[in-house]
Design a protein around this nucleic acid. Structure first.
Lengths: 217, 217
DNA sequence: AAGGTATTTAACCGCTTGGTACAATTGCCT
DNA sequence: AGGCAATTGTACCAAGCGGTTAAATACCTT
């Protein structure tokens, strides 16, 4: 095992059986494990078993369970924020931009259930661990800025109301997109899974778009 | 300790130091513990410590940790459904009834954070435990019926659109009310806690009402 | 080639935790 | 009075778990 010839891409693989790759593997395995079982439910041994490594290595690279969890959380947030930043709304009218943003958020949440679950888990812990991560402690966020710009443009064009709060708007977009993924299990249990077919999801997404547009117009 | 003279209310206290009260105490303590720490994070010893009883009694009454958790979940859902059923919308116009229902849901979620947390936890477990509870396995639910009646009345009065889905409507009401409580920690972390002041919450609630009304009208 | 450092393996450790064995106690019934 | 079943207290256990010790291995430096 471990031909020791994996390529990270940049570095010429100085020697090591590519410790950065091991680190990355552990991080990904841990992400899956934590997302699936929560912080307390996750097992270090099971994380090691997901890849070809030993429990020892996890402690070697991440210190302890909490450190690993924090690293997972940090990477997850960083990825999401990056993908958010990549959304290009230039050239779109305020209405189209808003629609696009909502659709993107709705789809993005659906496509990244692991991230949603990590956020659920972190909320169960009252965001205790997030708070310790410096790179996440800032209250600034590109998502709000993006939304703020759309709102400004909309107001100037006389299309949107004057009293819109980008923050409250984001709150609502997030709420609907988040719930759709986070509470699927219990919602289905209580009311059936009719809303989660592909067709129903499309309708739901459109309902969300219309809801948001109704708020600003 | 245990004067052995507690009154449950009805029964004349045949003998025992009121085992039903003990059972109820355990259930309440367990509810708090599970809501706070999750299924895996909860400690049987800590539950016992919350009241004047021994770990032994918990196993005596509930079998094992899972059994206790299921009992907690069942009681929580039963309470919520009962309170939902007590909401009286008779005599209100469709619009007023819907507004009232939304406001009730929003407030109810806020007032029962423990229940919300239990649902979050159960979703992390893909509703695995709920599924084993017969009294919850039915897909029927009074909330939808109530909403269905309002929609019917609204349509007949020519106030509501024809193509409303009570289920999708409930989904949206739940989503907004749920997220407000469930994701408060991470949302505050990311965007500050401006939306969670009393005033902002009132505005948010009104925004939710308007959103829902916009869908049906 | 030798010394040094980063990485990896293998075995191990002690505490926590869910769960139990067993006896004692309590009140009811006959 | 004495048996019986429900309830409770005490002490305990085996397994699982996060974390560690110690030593080997691989590569780099000089």
């Amino acid at each position: 095992m471990a031909e020791g010839t994996k390529e990270t891409g940049k570095r010429v693989r100085t020697w090591k059986q590519d410790p950065e790759a091991v680190r990355a593997d552990i991080l990904n395995a841990a992400t899956a494990e934590f997302a699936q079982h929560g912080l307390d439910g996750a097992r270090m041994q099971d994380i090691a078993d997901r890849i070809q490594t030993s429990k020892r290595m996890i402690f070697y690279y991440f210190g302890d369970k909490d450190g690993l969890y924090r690293a997972v959380l940090e990477q997850a947030y960083r990825s999401v924020r990056q993908r958010e930043a990549e959304l290009d709304l230039k050239g779109l009218s305020p209405v189209d931009a808003l629609r696009r943003l909502v659709e993107f958020t709705f789809d993005h949440h659906r496509d990244h259930a692991d991230f949603i679950r990590l956020v659920m888990i972190e909320n169960i812990h009252d965001a205790r661990h997030m708070r310790k991560i410096e790179s996440l402690s800032g209250t600034s966020n590109a998502a709000i800025d993006q939304l703020g710009k759309i709102c400004e443009a909309g107001k100037e064009a006389g299309l949107f109301r004057d009293d819109i709060s980008p923050l409250a708007l984001h709150w609502q977009i997030s709420a609907l997109s988040f719930f759709n993924v986070a509470n699927r299990a219990t919602f289905s249990m209580n009311f059936g899974d009719a809303l989660f077919s592909e067709d129903a999801q499309k309708e739901l997404r459109e309902q969300v778009v219309k809801s948001i547009l109704a708020i600003v117009m």
